[in-house]
Design a protein around this nucleic acid. Structure first.
Length: 934
RNA sequence: GCCGGAGUGGCGGAAUGGCAGACGCGAAGGAUUCAAAAUCCUUUGCCCGCAAGGGCGUGUGGGUUCAAGUCCCACCUCCGGUACCA
């Protein structure tokens, strides 16, 4: 009784593929190439999740299909093993990260291999391999050695940075400082996001709503020396070069919004001596204006004015006050003695607020008056200066002009402190008139010589006017901040950087990059690798042997921060192409031949992290001539999330009775209800035994705490890898979020059983071909069904519509199962078509059908178009757009004939009899519609 | 609040503006079996009807069209993301 037994045939073919190196890719592609890439996983301690195989199966199907079409395919896999998840696991289980990572990686590798993915395992990489780390560090040196030429919009070697004469004159140290201030990798001492719970600082992108993206821990602001990457230099290109990419629009938009380019104007407000008389103030203001007109708008602000950034210079006449951030550099200068105490208290409180507090309390605007005034450059009027924490120091100039009539936040601020609200824009035609605050564009009122102008024209003109008199300038700003690139954790790449020490062992502030030949810098051996409660990195506890080095007679201390999780993933795709190269990070010939990535599949959660960071690195490598493409990932597809099985939830009150869903309060306990106790009533589900009680029906995210996590190992054991692969593709569109259903896996398993029985004689003693498999020619009908299936599956693979491809193959099996004679030729086409989806079963059946070489290397069957057409076709006939009858006509029957045949159809004839036909729409091979007069 | 995405049978889901519900799950019936499992076959959107047949149906309300799940306008609900960026 040879039944379909995946637990035998799956390992058998996996071993065979591994031994034969069936999926090895050539060094260079021959003919067409396809670089098909998955987002490589973090080998966490929990093993593979059913979400992983979804994208991996999709790319595997495409890879196998492309290979069968004769394309040179590179389809690699590796592990992103540095970083917090692995390290947290290591700490939790008390094992050194390298050991736990090795173990977790082994589990992931085993699970991936168990699913029969056609990776070229000879190209496997891990970001933690010293050889990989070496090149990650090398790229850091490239970043360190690059400055951004904003005129050319290009990164260039630091040696090509022109040193201004006045800097030269100041000597070596100043030249060094000048260079350092232009490098793409630089150190900065600024308030950063410190997460005490994780024991590290985090990048902006890793902080969401004031808490850490990973773990949801609170984050506070702390000034610290950190390594930064100047991603903001590339902001324009990261935005504009998205255009050409075949990515989901939603992801492009997410990136554009994150970059957050805005245009507007900078305006300087004159800051007079506060104790001067009104006349002196006016004189000083006039002198200042004359000076500005003569010398133009200065690039650097001096202390005699307050510079603000606004996107709406057309509201300049509606200013009621200036607001500066608590951390603004002019804070001390503008704070009058009488206000010093309140200002100090306010700013002190603001600095100690966590980001979470700042956002949480966002409803109520707070602030303090400084006691100072500045002078409006166009009206000459005095404007009070306030401090408020709703203004961010890190954006624009850290100061704004507050226009309560036309900005919601300014309005709230003005309301809270009773400030004047001056309306300067009238809506054009009643849009938004009833709102308290009008933030739209319209016609200017009470705006001096600009009164009556259209907002947009105003914006252009005033920016130009201000530039002419040296008081303002058009300006562009970005929400994107420079990338905080260092972490106070153990499990990451050490920086290839040395800090010079003086005779006393104190850092001199001079930094020295290692030579490429000195790489990799290994991680030191530590007995305690846990993060500290303070920002002092674990690496600072390393032995002196590691920590201190001597070069050219000078003593140095190594950088003890490590790189963040994202470093390795920024460039791993390149290393896959040339994983063993120990001369260079990649051979340019290989890079040119394989790049860019033709299909990149992964989760949407990386939309602004990994995908933005790696694009940035890639552009730097491109500018420096190390890679040949501007963008790394030509086509991106996000697979949707797989939720847990649908659950019904009822609510029980404290007295034990049921509470209808929607009416429950937080004191009622959610209770799981089994589906057999539930029925549908109208729009909602209710308890079968108590129909007045509604229950919620919903699939939830898989999580350990909910206990709805599906383990791929168990599914493979119960149904086989081919069933898991097929089910995940059959659930619905790749990009959709969809709930898991174990009985659905059973469904595709029985489909595979049916495939097996098409070929194998289950009644026989031994494994042998079913006697119903014949050598004869397929009938015309069989050819039609087979080629139509093939045609549909081929098209669906190309559009990644795997669910409908599988449905079509199921239809084929439904057709073929009752056949008493099943030509081998027909079955061979089917098995070849099935093979990218269920490769193990396909290999086995292919062999049983008598083929010598594996189906994985077979040629994708060619669609014969003559089988796609029928001789006759059934056509719906409508009257008044309603389906009334069907007729069968020869394919290609023209409209006139079609109309005649349709009108003659008895039922139609009865319906249109004695009625006036106004119009007949007859479309050959489609439909006929009679429009009649009532 | 803002930005995405989605609302189609009991469920997952199909449908170049042209026969709504392909395919699968579940359910019901039958064949096979001593019996069960497995397998095979049939039915399965809702309502009226013994039937033939008819009516109603893609979140709601309008519109465009000979024809709308699909296009346009307004709204509702759910899911996901995001939060003072001037």
């Amino acid at each position: 009784m040879p039944k379909y037994n995946p637990s035998v045939i799956e390992p058998k073919w996996q071993n065979w593929w591994a031994e034969q190196k069936t999926f090895r890719s050539p060094r260079l592609p021959r003919g067409e190439k396809a670089f098909i890439l998955d987002m490589f996983p973090y080998p966490s301690g929990d093993g593979l999740h059913v979400g992983h195989p979804e994208g991996y199966t999709a790319t595997d199907i495409v890879s196998r299909y492309e290979r069968m079409r004769g394309t040179s395919v590179i389809h690699p896999m590796g592990f992103d093993a540095f970083g917090l998840p692995a390290e947290e696991y290591a700490i939790r289980t008390g094992t050194p990260p390298r050991e736990s990572t090795a173990r977790n990686t082994a589990t992931f590798r085993r699970q991936l291999q168990m699913l029969g993915f056609s990776y070229d395992w000879d190209r496997e990489i891990s970001t933690t391999d010293p050889e990989f780390v070496r090149w990650t560090q090398w790229i850091f040196l490239v970043l360190y050695d690059t400055w951004f030429d904003s005129h050319r919009q290009q990164g260039r070697p630091i040696s090509e940075l022109k040193i201004p004469d006045e800097i030269h004159e100041l000597g070596e140290v100043s030249v060094g400082t000048y260079r350092d201030s232009h490098r793409l990798a630089y150190q900065s001492e600024a308030p950063v996001n410190w997460c005490p719970e994780l024991g590290t600082v985090l990048a902006n992108e890793e902080v969401i709503g004031g808490v850490s993206e990973r773990g949801g821990h609170p984050v506070i602001r702390l000034p610290l020396r950190q390594w930064m990457l100047r991603i903001t230099a590339y902001a324009d290109r990261l935005g504009s070069e998205l255009e050409s990419l075949d990515w989901p629009e939603s992801i492009k938009k997410l990136q554009r919004d994150w970059i957050g380019r805005s245009t507007g104007a900078e305006v300087d407000f004159f800051l007079p001596a506060q104790d001067a008389s009104e006349k002196d103030m006016n004189d000083a203001f006039l002198t200042w204006k004359i000076h500005r007109k003569a010398n133009g708008y200065p690039a650097q602000v001096s202390g005699d004015c307050l510079r603000i950034y606004t996107t709406r210079p057309d509201t300049l006449f509606g200013v009621s006050c200036m607001v500066i951030a608590p951390e603004h550099p002019l804070r001390g200068q503008v704070t009058q003695p009488a206000q010093a105490d309140v200002v100090h208290d306010y700013c002190d409180a603001a600095s100690r607020k966590s980001d979470l507090d700042r956002t949480d309390l966002s409803q109520e605007k707070t602030g303090v008056f400084t006691g100072s005034y500045c002078i409006h450059p166009l009206t000459g009027k005095c404007v009070p200066i306030w401090i408020a924490d709703y203004v961010l120091a890190s954006y624009g100039t850290g100061a704004i002009m507050s226009v309560p009539a036309h900005d919601t936040r300014d309005f709230e601020f003005a309301e809270a402190f009773g400030l004047r609200i001056i309306s300067v824009i009238e809506p054009n035609d009643g849009d938004g008139v009833d709102a308290q605050v009008f933030t739209g564009y319209g016609r200017s009122i009470a705006s001096g010589s600009y009164t009556g102008m259209d907002s947009k024209a105003f914006i252009e003109k005033v920016a130009a006017d201000l530039l002419k008199i040296g008081i303002g300038s058009p300006a562009t700003n970005y929400k994107l901040r420079d990338w905080l690139f260092s972490r106070q954790r153990f499990w990451g790449e050490p920086f290839p950087i040395l800090h010079e020490l003086n005779e006393l062992g104190q850092p001199t502030g001079v930094v020295r990059a290692l030579d490429p030949q000195e790489l990799p810098v290994p991680l030191p051996k530590l007995s305690d690798y846990r993060p500290g409660k303070t920002p002092d990195p674990p690496l600072s506890r390393a032995d002196d042997d590691w920590l201190y080095v001597e070069r050219d007679g000078k003593k140095y201390r190594r950088e003890t921060n490590t790189m963040p999780q994202w470093a390795g993933s920024c460039w791993y795709y390149l290393r896959f192409l040339d994983p063993a190269n120990n001369e260079q990070f990649i051979d340019p010939e290989i890079e040119k031949a394989w790049m860019p990535v033709d299909l990149y599949v992964g989760g949407a959660e990386h939309a602004v992290l990994h995908l933005l960071y790696s694009r940035f690195w890639h552009k730097v490598l491109y500018d420096r001539g190390f890679v040949s493409t501007v963008e790394p990932f030509a086509r991106l597809v996000n697979q949707g999330m797989i939720l847990g099985e649908v659950e019904f939830t009822g609510y029980r009150s404290s007295s034990g009775g049921w509470v209808s869903a929607g009416r429950q309060s937080s004191s009622d306990t959610p209770t799981k209800v089994f589906s057999e106790h539930v029925e549908k009533q109208g729009e909602s589900f209710v308890l079968r035994d108590a129909p007045e009680v509604r229950v919620d029906s919903r699939a939830h995210k898989m999580s350990k705490s909910r206990g709805n996590v599906v383990n791929p190992d168990e599914i493979v054991q119960a149904f086989g890898a081919d069933s898991l692969r097929l089910y995940e593709m059959f659930m619905g569109p790749l990009e959709a979020t969809k709930p898991w259903s174990t009985s659905g896996v059973g469904g595709v398993r029985s489909f595979l059983d049916r495939c097996w029985r098409l070929v194998v004689d289950e009644g026989a003693e031994n494994l042998q071909r079913s006697p119903q498999v014949t050598e004869g020619r397929p009938t015309d009908e069989q050819m039609r069904v087979t080629h139509r299936m093939l045609d549909k599956v081929t098209a669906d693979i190309q559009s990644l519509s795997f669910n409908t491809a599988i449905a079509k193959m199921m239809e084929f099996v439904n057709f073929a199962t009752p056949l008493q004679e099943r030509p081998r030729e027909m079955l061979s086409i089917f098995i070849a078509t099935l093979s990218p989806f269920a490769p193990h079963l396909a290999e086995e059946l292919w062999t049983i059908l008598g083929h010598d070489s594996p189906v994985s290397l077979a040629t994708w069957p060619l669609v014969d178009n003559r089988w796609l057409q029928d001789d006759t076709i059934e056509i719906p006939i409508q009257v008044q757009g309603k389906l009334r009858a069907r007729i069968t006509v020869p394919t290609g029957t023209d409209a006139k004939q079609l109309e005649a045949i349709a009108a003659a159809e008895p039922k139609i004839a009865a319906l249109i009899d004695e009625k006036t036909i106004i119009k007949v729409v007859a479309i050959p091979d489609r439909m006929v519609n009679f429009v009649v007069k009532k």
